[in-house]
Structures are given as structure tokens and as C-alpha cells.
Design a protein around this nucleic acid. Sequence first.
DNA 1: TTTATTCTTGATAATAAATATCAATATCGT
DNA 2: ACGATATTGATATTTATTATCAAGAATAAA
Lengths: 153, 153
Amino acid sequence: MTPVAKRKMERRKTFNDYIARKQLKSTKQRDTIFNEFFNNYMGKHVTVEELYEDIKQNHPSIGFATVYRTLKLFKESGIASERNFGDGKARYEPIRSETEHHHHMICTECGQIVEFANMQIESCLHQVAKLNEFGVANYKLEIYGKCSKCSEG
Amino acid sequence: MTPVAKRKMERRKTFNDYIARKQLKSTKQRDTIFNEFFNNYMGKHVTVEELYEDIKQNHPSIGFATVYRTLKLFKESGIASERNFGDGKARYEPIRSETEHHHHMICTECGQIVEFANMQIESCLHQVAKLNEFGVANYKLEIYGKCSKCSEG
DNA sequence: TTTATTCTTGATAATAAATATCAATATCGT
DNA sequence: ACGATATTGATATTTATTATCAAGAATAAA
Ligand SMILES: [Mn+2]
Ligand SMILES: [Mn+2]
Ligand SMILES: [Zn+2]
Ligand SMILES: [Zn+2]
């Protein structure tokens, strides 16, 4: 099994566990959205609209509201992250591992998103939180500017 | 003159310069909103609605749209920052100095906002950007969780 | 000071993302 | 298969923000 496939399976299990714990139900629609999301959007940051349009190609009967609800469910169950890059639309990305954290540089010119991680920032951040007796649930670091392509010339 | 008053005067100059450069006009309304904002909301993070309600007390004729437009203008002119802490409402805060940068810890329980600054994070961040040839325009770091009061017990 | 130009204002309509509603349907434990 | 409960898709609603526009204010020229 490829690493990507393994990752998908792990998220699937997390999701199934969540479904069971909360006494929710497995449905065709949730399966479809799960597969589309984890097959085609790993490492991407997709809007609800984009995912809906994509899914509609092969599953025209799936409703817009269901895609909204399901992505929210993915977030609640811990298999997806919601991102907001300042254009007023929520974006979702599949979570790669339970522990991994990464941040984003957003090009305000072309929209390109570059991901990065930095241990030192991570530890500074927790240090600051500890100093203020602040219990960290999550955090985000976003850098806005121009990517290398857009700032050359 | 107190440091606070001096700060306000500096922002006023920046704003006047911007007005002149862009061939905009000085108005009673902009004066009123400027004063209210810089007198009462230094170090705060006020929503448009909150500021509007506050100003309405003494200036009932000022319209909602004008407060919206003027805060946007403050942002464009570089005397205010827009913040988004995930509740769907934009917040504005007066800028304290042209160079200062700070970040936020947001208590998801009581809404308290704790500000912090960290040189080390700052320099890591610029290092990462440089490595990716990314021209930094601005950046934000937000920590969500529970403040000391809300997590005790 | 008058006049002309341009910008601003306040009220209100429009937009757009996200959520709520609800009757019909699907899931699941028994 | 039955009954209880959750889900779905269509659509209406909400909410923050932006656009529209006629009337009024600010500025520059005359
Ligand atoms: Mn990402
Ligand atoms: Mn602040
Ligand atoms: Zn770019
Ligand atoms: Zn708190």
C-alpha cells in the first residue's frame, strides 16, 4: 500500500470512529465526498464550491448543503482543517497526520499557497502561551505577500 | 503632551497626508470617527457595529455605511489594522507605531484577547520567507484556546 | 464670494457565504 | 420487516459587507 493510501485509511478510521461515537450514520454521500476529498485534494486547499462543482461531475444528485455539512463534519472529526486566507471563503484541506502542524504563505498576486513548518516558531509559541497560562487549542501563522514568480522583474 | 496624545497626532498626520495624496476630502464625520477610535479604542479590537453604536450616542446622524467606509480608509492609510478572529466580524485596532508588530491569543471561552510580541518568531518567519523568495507584505499569528481564568478549576 | 467640480454621506438595496428549515428518504438496531 | 432516528436536497433565511444613488459638503477656480 502506498503511503498516501495508508494515510487515507487512517483518516477513514478516525472518521468512522467519530461517526460511531456520535451515533451518526454512514451514507453514500459521505463516502463519495470523503473519497473525492482525500483522493484529489491532499495538499490542496479547496473551497466548498470547488469541491461541490467537482463532485457534481460524477454525482449530480449530491446537494450543495450536503457538501457544506460534510466538510464541517470532517473538521469536527479531526480529519480536515478549515483555513481562511482572507478572500471570504472557507477552505478545507485533508489532515496529513494527527500531530503535524504547518503554516501558509499566501501570494496576494496569483493566489499561490506555499506551506511551511518551523520547529523553532512552534516552540517559541508554546513558550509564550505557557508564560501567559494560556491553554492552546490551535494556532495559525499566515504570511501574505508576493511569491517568487510574482515579485521578479 | 502625553505619549498617547503624541501617538494620536502622528496617526492624524499620516491620515491627513493620505487624504491629500489621494485627493480625498476632510469631513466632520471622518474627524468624529477618528477621534472616537483613537481616544477610546487604543489597545482594543472593536467591531464596526460596536464603534457605530458608540458613536451614535453623541453623533446620531452618522450613518452605518460611513463607519464601515471610514474604518476601511483607516486601514488603507495605514493607521489601523483589520483583524479577524474567526467570529465572522472584522475588528479594527489603532496602530501604535509604524514598525511595531504584535500577535494575539484568543480565548474561545470568554473572548478575551491577549497580545504578545516575540522577536525570535519574527526573525524565524522572515528567514522562512527569504528561503522561499517570498516578499512579505504582512503576517499574522493567532493562538486559540483558553485563557488562564477559563481553564482553571 | 460665487461657481463649478469632485467627493462624501446616509438610506437603502444588493451580494455572497454560510446556516436553518422541512418534508421525504435512508440508515440501523431490534 | 419495523420503528426510531439521522440525513438529504431544495430552498429560505441570516448576517456581514458592499454597491447604488440622489442630496449635500468640501475644495479649487474664477
Ligand atoms: Mn495547508
Ligand atoms: Mn492587537
Ligand atoms: Zn504569486
Ligand atoms: Zn477566557
